[in-house]
């Protein structure tokens, strides 16, 4: 993938959508490709939901997928950890490679794949268990620790990274479902990173949250991007602009345009992208 950036300096903070993420230092030095998808199509009961999508997700960068409802962005996201496997009559074609290995190969264990590619959902979905058990669940089923102390460390570390430790450290045995919406979502993020995934998929993680909780999650995404490759689906263009380094615009099952976030929001190549960014449809 080439990144030809011709951003004019005065455009950087001047778009109506607000602040644009400054992007990685230099931007020209692109990171290695983590997830590489080629001509990915998805069919639900014979109806095509995704049409030949090819895009490359760079390591330790935030890639945002935007587009109007039903455009296929969530469908694409769910291909990356094969969550579509569980949906009846859903067929995925094309190839998706994680570190060069096709995730649909028979040698790939989907359970292992999902340990490497974590996911956070639209609606916070903590298990109706204690906060501790929520975080500890992944490490427990994957056998990521030898002693109880190690598990305690994993839980603390995950909650720290998710910025929730200070709020819950004294009530780890309380129900995860008793937290506020924003806290629950951070708990889900902590739960996902507790198994130490390489890629973190986020499916509209803020759409059920209030603006303050949203800001908190966005901050968190920024922090996490130093260690994790993040792919985030979002309804909100402002959010994509704020948190991502790269943005893909989906429309009616097509990936219309994929480029650096700066480029997409300032100087999109495609007319459709421009129309969507400027709010003419969507």
């Amino acid at each position: 993938m080439t990144l030809s950036l011709t951003t004019e300096p005065d455009m950087e903070r001047a778009t109506p959508q607000g602040l644009i993420h400054p992007g990685p230092a230099g931007n020209q030095a692109s990171n290695p490709v983590k997830v590489d998808s080629e001509r990915v199509s998805v069919f639900y009961e014979g109806k095509q939901a995704l049409n030949n999508v090819s895009l490359e997700v760079q390591e330790r960068r935030v890639t945002a997928l935007i587009g109007p409802s039903g455009c296929g962005k969530s469908t694409y996201l769910r291909c990356l950890n094969r969550m579509n496997d569980t949906i009846l009559n859903c067929r995925v074609t094309g190839s998706i490679r994680l570190d060069g290995q096709d995730i649909h190969e028979p040698t790939v264990d989907v359970v292992q794949l999902r340990a490497r590619v974590g996911m956070v959902f639209q609606k916070p979905n903590p298990f109706p268990k204690s906060i501790f058990d929520n975080i500890a669940y992944g490490p427990r089923i994957h056998g990521l620790f030898r002693h109880r102390d190690e598990l305690d460390g994993i839980v603390e570390n995950s909650l720290m990274k998710a910025g929730l430790w200070n709020e819950v450290k004294d009530r780890l045995q309380e129900m995860g479902t008793g937290l506020s919406g924003g806290q629950q979502q951070r708990l889900c993020i902590a739960r996902a990173i507790a198994v130490n995934p390489e890629v973190l998929l986020m499916d509209e993680p803020c759409s059920a949250l209030d603006p303050i909780a949203t800001a908190r999650i966005e901050e968190l995404i920024d922090e996490l991007s130093t260690n994790y490759t993040i792919v985030i689906v979002t309804h909100s263009m402002q959010q994509a602009a704020r948190v991502s380094h790269f943005t893909g615009f989906f429309h009616m099952g097509d990936l219309v345009e994929f480029d650096s976030t700066e480029r997409i929001f300032t100087n999109p190549r495609q007319e459709r992208t421009k129309d969507y960014i400027t709010g003419r449809f969507g």
């Binding site: 950890n81 969550m83 569980t86 359970v111 292992q112 794949l113 999902r114 340990a115 974590g118 996911m119 959902f121 609606k123 979905n125 903590p126 298990f127 109706p128 669940y137 992944g138 089923i141 994957h142 889900c188 739960r191 996902a192 198994v195």
Partner: peptide, 13 residues
């Protein structure tokens, strides 16, 4: 369904 999805996404069999 969200509970199933959550567990599955963590790699539960």
């Amino acid at each position: 369904q969200a509970i199933r999805d959550g567990a599955r996404a963590l790699g539960a069999s």
